[in-house]
């Protein structure tokens, strides 16, 4: 019997995310399951009532796609996280509006999946947990500016070709003007952070009394 770390360090998320990529990803997003049910299963319920490719039967349920994006940031795969983000973010779908059909400025709950009669066609726009989860995934895990109990954590996981960005974040009364530089084109890893010119250890910026605006420089690498 194995003990301690060896007992649990099996590389499961790594494998599971590969399976998601291989089995669930399609041009229009990540489908909910695979392969679709083609008949009613009384022991599984409503999921097997939908035609193939729609809703919970292998539709792209946009609410859960950011769970995978966040998971990809945990395994440091920024390219894949951002790729998944762009597949369902409405502003990136404006050019295929005639297929997507719902508004190019808000998320829809569901996009028909790869097994559907009309893959890529969205329904149920506006009122969906998709909005909150995608916002959470992009702002806190991909761009990586994240509120934490003791301060503001800086932990981006970027597509490698994203070489820089700036974020202005007001957090507990202080405005942080954050510049992230990624000259080496890495996905993850904060090499150095300076706050108002002073290098800090680690990637957690703790509150500072008496300052309203703080300059933060983040070097990835």
């Amino acid at each position: 019997m194995l003990h301690g770390r060896n007992r649990t360090e099996k590389g499961y998320p790594e494998k599971a995310l590969k399976a998601v990529h291989d089995r669930l990803a399609c041009q229009y997003g990540l489908v909910l399951n695979n392969p679709p049910f083609s008949k009613y299963h009384v022991e599984l319920g409503e999921i097997s009532t939908y035609p193939e490719g729609y809703k919970e039967n292998v539709g792209i349920f946009c609410h859960n796609n950011p769970w995978i994006m966040i998971a990809e940031t945990i395994v440091a795969n920024g390219d894949r996280a951002f790729d998944y983000y762009k597949r369902i973010a409405p502003a990136y779908l404006e050019d295929i509006s005639e297929l997507h059909r719902t508004e190019p400025y808000v998320y829809a709950q569901m996009i028909a999946g790869k097994d559907a009669y009309k893959p890529g066609e969205a329904k149920n726009s506006w009122l969906t947990g998709t909005a909150a989860w995608n916002y959470y995934a992009i702002t806190q895990f991909i761009l990586g500016i994240r509120a934490d109990y003791e301060g503001l954590k800086i932990d981006p996981c970027l597509p490698k070709d994203m070489k820089q960005f700036r974020v202005t974040r007001t957090f507990r009364g202080v405005t942080y003007q954050i510049q992230v530089l990624n000259p080496a084109g890495v996905s993850k890893g904060v090499k150095e952070i300076s706050v108002d010119g002073v290098t800090i250890g680690g990637n957690l910026i703790t509150p500072m009394d008496g300052k309203e605006v703080v300059q933060v420089k983040v070097l990835m690498g």
């Binding site: 599971a16 995310l17 669930l24 909910l32 399951n33 695979n34 349920f61 769970w67």
Partner: peptide, 13 residues
């Protein structure tokens, strides 16, 4: 049918 579901992959990962 449905050999793999996304929800468990997301949350367990």
């Amino acid at each position: 049918g449905a050999q793999i579901f996304i929800e468990a992959q997301g949350f367990c990962s």
